[in-house]
């Protein structure tokens, strides 16, 4: 009896993949992402990356406001054209992390590091706690810096930094 129940439950753990054939994404007037899967309409959904660092475009979970999964987009590239642009836009809304283009100065004092950087959006000054977790080396030679407020800054390619910049940050990586 118990075994039968477990098997029935197993079905609820099947992965539902969303593809262009059965799902249609669109943006509402209120700038929210919505999706119609088959006949069912979800007026507000969010995109969550399952592997934000190791494979950001794979297994993107589409979730309703109660955090229930509607389905998973196996690869973003399964979609194209405007839908792909829309999905990327909403992923950018969820995952905001300015790219550090230049490290100007890093000062280390009192258990915190004080960063002056240039990003794609201009100069930034922020403070990072030296706790071994706020500056993270990521796969593929990338790095992420999380400041005391929770803002995230990304360094897409550590090798692209100049020797001087690398000298400033390498001890924190």
């Amino acid at each position: 009896m118990e075994i039968t129940i477990e098997r029935e439950q197993d079905k609820s753990y099947d992965i539902t993949y969303l593809n262009p054939a059965q799902s249609c994404f669109y943006e509402t007037e209120g700038r929210m992402l919505a999706v119609k899967v088959g006949e069912k309409e979800y007026p507000r959904v969010q995109l969550h990356r399952s592997f934000p660092h190791s494979s950001p475009d794979s297994f993107v979970s589409v979730r309703d406001p109660d955090n229930k999964e509607i389905g998973i987009i196996r690869e973003l590239s399964d979609f194209n054209g405007n839908t792909l642009t829309l999905l990327r836009h909403h992923l950018d809304i969820r995952y905001f992390s300015p790219v550090i283009t230049k490290v100007v100065n890093v000062k280390d004092e009192f258990g915190y590091t004080f960063w002056d950087v240039e990003t794609g959006d201009g100069s930034c000054h922020f403070v990072v706690r030296k706790d071994g977790k706020s500056i993270v080396s990521l796969p593929g030679g990338k790095a992420m810096v999380i400041d005391v407020d929770g803002n995230r800054f990304s360094i897409p390619c550590l090798e692209a930094l100049t020797k001087k910049e690398m000298n400033m940050i390498e001890i924190y990586l």
Binding site: T28, G30, P43, I93, D147, D149, N151
Partner: peptide, 12 residues
């Protein structure tokens, strides 16, 4: 009954 995004901000 529809949600609208009013403004976006950083974590600061």
């Amino acid at each position: 009954g529809k949600t609208k995004m009013l403004v976006r901000i950083s974590m600061k």
